[in-house]
């Protein structure tokens, strides 16, 4: 077993377990801490895939900013007792879990069936697995071919920032009573 293989299984296991922790733990604080763990695991998986810059951005954006907001909001709410953490009724819950299992089985089955063709593309196709530091190439691509998307996202972020502030500052929330 080479270090790479060990690393993959270790990270995959940690990430999936942490993701399960998000949906299983009844206390939302533990949910969000598990989600942090998942994000760190995903960042590490990005590293094993050679996307170093993305791994850093993943940590900065998700773990460093978005999830801190989640934690802070949850702590400020201070939900003492989480009643009805899960969906109502054992029957609907079972149906939903079954639906998720079915979807998961279908996706995994589809991947397993198409594994041969996927491997083929890898072996003969367009090829060249990206090695080493690809950050510069990434930047060039982002600021040339995908410039419009980049700018559009900038506008989106501005709108969202203004909107979020307006929403959170509104006195009566969304249901203001005048």
């Amino acid at each position: 077993m080479t270090p790479d293989v060990f690393l993959f299984w270790f990270l995959a296991l940690t990430t999936v377990l942490a993701a399960l922790g998000v949906i299983i733990s009844a206390n939302p604080i533990y949910s969000v801490l598990s989600l942090v763990m998942t994000m760190v695991g995903v960042a590490a998986i990005f590293v094993t895939l050679g996307a170093y810059f993305l791994a850093g951005v993943q940590l900065i954006v998700y773990a460093g900013a978005v999830l801190v907001l989640f934690v802070m909001v949850l702590m400020l709410f201070d939900l003492k007792h989480e009643i009805h953490a899960f969906t109502r009724g054992p029957v609907t819950g079972a149906i939903k879990i079954a639906a998720v299992g079915l979807l998961g089985g279908m996706i995994v089955g589809a991947i397993a069936l198409s594994a041969n063709s996927l491997m083929k593309t890898e072996n003969n196709g367009i090829q060249t697995v990206i090695e080493g530091d690809s950050t510069k190439a990434l930047g060039k691509l982002l600021f040339s071919q995908y410039l419009f998307g980049f700018e559009a996202l900038g506008v989106l972020l501005l709108v969202v920032a203004v909107g979020a502030v307006a929403l959170a500052r509104a006195k009566g929330g969304t249901h203001a009573q005048h």
């Binding site: 801490l33 942090v36 760190v40 960042a43 791994a55 850093g56 951005v57 993943q58 940590l59 900065i60 773990a63 460093g64 900013a65 801190v68 934690v71």
Partner: peptide
């Protein structure tokens, strides 16, 4: 990235 984890 790693120093942003200090908040937790």
């Amino acid at each position: 990235a790693v120093s942003s984890l200090a908040a937790y």
